[in-house]
Design a binder for these strands. Structure first.
Lengths: 269, 269
DNA sequence: GGATCGTAAACTGTCGACAATTGACAATAA
DNA sequence: TTATTGTCAATTGTCGACAGTTTACGATCC
């Protein structure tokens, strides 16, 4: 029988590692854990490889901030916590490193990547280029139905923006961007775009984006959708590119406005 | 004492795995292998980790075509060949997978990624977007000296193009693109661009690019450099973007012109 | 003869153990 | 006191072995 992978709850001190993964330890007994019983396990069996599981779980942990940028990741501790050996952990960390979420310092350990302002700035620019391309492609591809969908989304955001309901606006905003990228018809673009967005989560000052004019941002969304609706690739490109670049400016000016705190030590190297 | 890492020459049948890596097995004796003796070893010691070494070596092997797209990679065989255990090999493969060079099929093994025409097309588009951004940034950044350098490069290529000397043109072309990307001042952009170019090496029909009008291509280069020299970001973006997209069209039409052979089996899945 | 089933080899996934390195702390010397 | 050196615990890097899966091949049955 395979090792158990129980995500040993409470082994060390973890906030919320849910037993989202519990392969059939006893093939016979199967209480149907209230939530989907068999499908989950089958999916688990198919994933076939702790490393794959661990990779997504650790990515989640980093995204959720359970491990903060700059933190060192202890292999032994993780292995203990997940009830596995260090092998799969190391494999997962390698994959994460290639994605830039984590940094490998030989013989020292792996550290959650810490993004400098400059790097965040660079990432935004690349993201803008990709998003610009997504807009261009959408303008050439999207049909009436999809455009209507886009307009609906922008309208919903308009409402949230008017009432300054950031909690409602934020997920809608995310969804709109995802929609555009996913409907570009270019999976490579979508994948790279997502990677960049992930990386930006490591930027500690990210939360600053919040304040910045919901109405302004949504006005830009309207321009974007208009260009797509008109099938004007060039204009779509420009509006999409500018949208991200303006978001970058909003963030950067916010960062520079409160130069206090934050920037403790740069390049511990 | 550490394991030896001899890259056991001739163990299985490898064409050219040079003993580029030979850490100080006997700290005393050090014959100064004719080439840089100590520095190499120190660099090796610093890299500290077979996995890191293996990663670059295997990347090289894939790039050089020593393992062809679609081929399965046998961990045991590689371990034997390199004189290591499978652990570091697996770690290196994980990293390569995240870069898209290699594909992981659980319980089956890892396979060198095989790029479909569609994927290559998608990658070209993303590459165009990144290159467009690079052009835009260069237009805003480059000084007289760098522009002069660019013009020199284009002039050299002009000469090669006139005499249809592809072997001279190709490396210059590569160098020009590298130059622009590197001088964009955005390392994230440069890194992603390079990854895409690497991926394109997996496209079997890549060699078709060759025939396609050297003079035409270099004419586009001239436009690019002109825009950069003028400091016209918008025009630079457009010319750089178009340059890659036209290269894509040249490749794609070449592919479609000889529909024979090649496309054996799609999606063995 | 062709399809189904069972078996064995080959290989991947995982583990536990050991070797080497790092970083911290204590002891010593100036 | 301060700088240097020696030692030790903690942690990473690597290995060899075992368990489980896949796949190819041959035997059996229709």
């Amino acid at each position: 029988m395979r090792p158990t992978l129980r995500f040993a709850a409470g082994c060390v001190n973890e906030p919320s590692v849910e037993a989202a993964a519990r392969p059939m330890t006893t093939p016979a007994l199967q209480k149907a854990d209230s939530m989907s019983s068999v499908a989950d396990n089958i999916a688990l069996m198919k994933s076939r490889s702790l490393a794959l599981l661990l990779e997504s779980e650790m990515e989640r942990m980093i995204m959720a901030g359970e491990i903060a940028p700059g933190d060192r990741i202890n292999e032994n501790q993780l292995a203990l916590r997940f009830g596995t050996s260090r092998g799969p952990i190391r494999e997962a960390l390698r994959a994460l490193e290639a994605g830039g979420l984590v940094e490998l310092r030989p013989n020292r350990g792996v550290f959650v990547r810490r993004l400098s302002i400059e790097e965040a700035c660079d990432i935004y620019a690349v993201r803008a280029a990709l998003f610009g391309l997504a807009g261009r492609l959408c303008a050439a591809r999207l049909g009436r139905a999809e455009v209507a969908d886009l307009k609906r989304q922008v309208a919903a955001m308009e409402k949230a923006a008017k009432s300054k309901d950031f909690d409602a606006y934020y997920p809608l905003n995310l969804q709109l961007h995802e929609f555009i990228v996913d409907h570009s018809g270019n999976p490579v673009l979508a994948s790279h775009y997502r990677d960049l967005v992930k990386l930006l989560h490591l930027f500690r000052a990210r939360s600053l984006v919040q304040g910045g004019g919901l109405a302004i941002s949504n006005g830009e969304h309207r321009d974007m959708v208009d260009a797509i609706a008109a099938g004007d690739g060039e204009r779509a490109h420009q509006s999409h590119f500018d949208h991200v670049m303006r978001a970058r400016e909003r963030l950067m000016s916010a960062v520079r406005d409160l130069p206090a705190a934050s920037e403790h030590k740069k390049a511990t190297r």
